[in-house]
């Protein structure tokens, strides 16, 4: 249970990271919180040649609201996303989702940049990023670019970062007039969810004007449930409609079968979570 040998570089500036990435490309493995990478290295499932440690690099921290977006530095820890007053004030659904990651020891180290980059299909935060139609900022010596979640998260453990690029921040648009929530079902507290839902609704005069619904844990990446949103538009979210929306959601997902849960059970969870979340969001609006 020990990692194999590798070269270790404790980078102390962003330029140093970018220069190494530019020169060595995919020989470099970036080390953020290490909460996915080090277990993989201990099991020898990952054998990096050069490990570039981001933990001493200034300029990757910070949580702020800029141009209508919540910008979170790549190295901000999950524990801080869960408790930061700017996050809990402006995007409580994100704070709640971050509190579902692993257990306290894991959250103290896990970073938002590492979590999104790792692109685990059962991860909470990629689903929240998808629900908000957020993006990541990628930086390299060639320049900087913003990439929407849909382009960044490709499939299981795969993102669209080029080998010379670094994720420097993750951005969530703040959507005035919308309410978002996140909820999930996991085998035990702290486990990856069997299914999770991030939902956002915009309601005026009791009528749904907009809805975003994203499921995690059911496919190789977050799934946007457009059918449910379409069905909800123009309707009142009364008990009967919410029940119907759960049914639409259950039929819309084609969930995976695996050792943890059957496809049928996951679909059922999606329906139940939709009922639960929308019910609570409506209660909050009253």
């Amino acid at each position: 249970m020990r990692p194999g040998a590798f070269r270790y570089l404790a980078a102390t500036s962003l330029d140093e990271v970018l220069e190494n990435l530019s020169e060595l490309g995919d020989e470099v493995t970036l080390l953020a919180g290490g909460q996915s990478l080090i277990p993989l290295m201990n099991l020898r499932l990952a054998r990096p040649e050069v490990l570039v440690d981001l933990n001493r690099v200034p300029g990757l921290a910070g949580i702020d609201l800029v141009d209508g977006e919540l910008r979170i530095g790549a190295m901000v820890r999950a524990a801080d996303v869960a408790s930061d007053p700017i996050v809990t004030g402006s995007l409580p659904a994100l704070a709640r989702a971050a509190a579902f990651i692993g257990h306290p020891q894991i959250r103290n180290r896990t970073t938002i940049g590492g979590n999104i980059s790792h692109a685990d299909p059962s991860s909470e935060l990629p689903g929240v990023l998808a629900a908000f139609e957020g993006s990541v900022t990628l930086k390299s010596l060639r320049g900087e670019r913003r990439v929407g979640w849909d382009e960044f998260i490709v499939s299981t453990f795969t993102n669209s970062r080029e080998a010379d690029e670094l994720v420097v921040d993750v951005r969530f648009p703040v959507r005035p007039g919308w309410s978002f929530a996140y909820d999930e079902v996991a085998p035990r507290h702290g486990d990856y969810p069997l299914a999770g839902i991030c939902a956002g609704v915009q309601i005026s005069d009791g009528i749904v004007r907009g809805m975003r619904l994203v499921a995690v844990g059911v496919s190789d990446r977050p799934v946007v449930l457009t059918g449910v949103a379409q069905f909800a538009l123009g309707r009142e979210l009364d008990a009967a409609t919410i029940k119907e929306l759960g049914k639409v959601g259950r039929e819309e997902v084609s969930a995976n079968d695996d050792a943890h849960a059957s496809s049928e059970y996951r679909k059922w969870l999606v329906g139940t979570l939709i009922n639960r979340i929308l019910g609570n969001l409506v209660l909050e609006q009253r």
Binding site: Y8, L31, G34, I38, N42, R56, Q105, N108, R109
Partner: peptide, 15 residues
């Protein structure tokens, strides 16, 4: 003061 897991932390990166 924060609890962390020493089995998935590299000693070199601890300040």
């Amino acid at each position: 003061g924060r609890p962390v897991l020493s089995c998935i932390t590299l000693a070199v990166r601890v300040d």
